[in-house]
Simulated assay, not measured.
Amino acid sequence: MTDNPANSPAAAGAPASAPAARAGLDAGPHAPVQTRQRMRDGTELLLRTWQPDPARFAEPLGSVLLVHGLAEHAGRYQHVADLLCGLGLRVRAHDLRGHGDSGGARMVADHPDAYLDDLAEIYDAALRSWKELPILLGHSMGGLIAARFATARVRPVRALVLSSPALALRLSPAALTVHRLLLALAPRLRVPNPIDARQLSHDPAVVAAYRADPLVQTTITASLLESFIRGMAQAQADAALLEAPMLMLVGGADRVVDPSGSRTFFDNAPPELRDEVWFEQGYHEIFNEAQPLRGEVFEALAGWLQRHLQPVQH
């Protein structure tokens, strides 16, 4: 099913706070607990865990593992965690290796599935503590990682939410030639990251905060780009293997990743499991878009999750 946000109440001029009010979300922030988890290779990753208000939810209604995008870190998702906690969900997000406050060589992928392997370890530890299948939510590169995780059936998930997933890139022949040379000669060499912050959001405050954030990486390596290229091809090939309900939230004006990759993945996913909301004017970071679009995105996410949080009728 493909939804048209132009038909939503938010698009019809509802105030920005209306989605949160209608969904019964908490207005106040939920402070995360920070811990570290050591991966099998010894690398320590920073984890943030947010819990719903116990006064409202005696027990969480579910769990979310959130995977952030290229060059950023999980600390940029406080507002997303607030929304999820307001729905009764607990949330855990890690800074990817080589990102944020996690260990590992900056922006290096030692092998194409390095991020997938880390997520499996994060998943296993969460499952031991929470005893339930998590919802997997990934943005951009995190969306690619989440899509690969679910379609390769690395572990079972309750549901899959993809925000502007990196399922296709706009790479010119010249850029691909440079990439292949670097991959052969210097795969760990850090070169300038081509992302233009102005293409992330229509909100100037978001752009300024991104540029000023000391934890945002400004470089990339051929090894990391290769993990994209291989991962995208495999995710597209495996789309039909999806076993969990999926929501795709896509910015139609995305210039950072090619949104046509989302169309292809969606078209090949099982029809009974797939939902998509296409925000035609949205830039890449739809969770950080200018209002009222950000409110429309959050309303679409909250509404879909609430429908999938209903207990199964026997």
Rank of each mutant, 00 (worst) to 15 (best):
D41R: 02
G42M: 07
G42R: 04
G42P: 03
G42A: 04
T43I: 14
T43G: 07
T43D: 05
T43A: 06
E44T: 08
E44D: 14
E44W: 05
E44C: 08
L45T: 07
L46F: 08
L46I: 11
L47P: 03
L47Q: 08
L47N: 06
R48I: 10
R48M: 12
T49W: 08
T49S: 13
T49D: 12
T49P: 07
W50S: 10
Q51P: 08
Q51A: 15
P52E: 09
D53T: 10
D53E: 13
D53C: 10
D53M: 10
P54H: 13
P54Q: 13
P54Y: 12
A55R: 15
F57R: 10
F57C: 12
F57M: 12
F57V: 11
E59S: 14
E59A: 15
E59Q: 14
P60I: 05
L61R: 14
L61M: 09
L61A: 09
L61P: 02
L61T: 08
G62W: 00
G62A: 06
G62K: 03
S63G: 11
S63P: 00
S63W: 08
V64H: 02
V64E: 01
L65R: 02
L65P: 00
L66E: 02
L66M: 10
V67L: 12
V67F: 06
V67A: 09
H68F: 01
G69M: 01
G69S: 01
L70F: 14
L70I: 05
L70E: 03
A71H: 03
A71E: 03
E72Y: 01
E72D: 13
H73P: 00
H73K: 00
H73N: 05
A74I: 14
A74R: 04
G75A: 06
R76E: 05
R76G: 05
Y77C: 06
Y77N: 05
Y77Q: 05
Y77V: 05
Q78P: 06
Q78W: 07
Q78T: 12
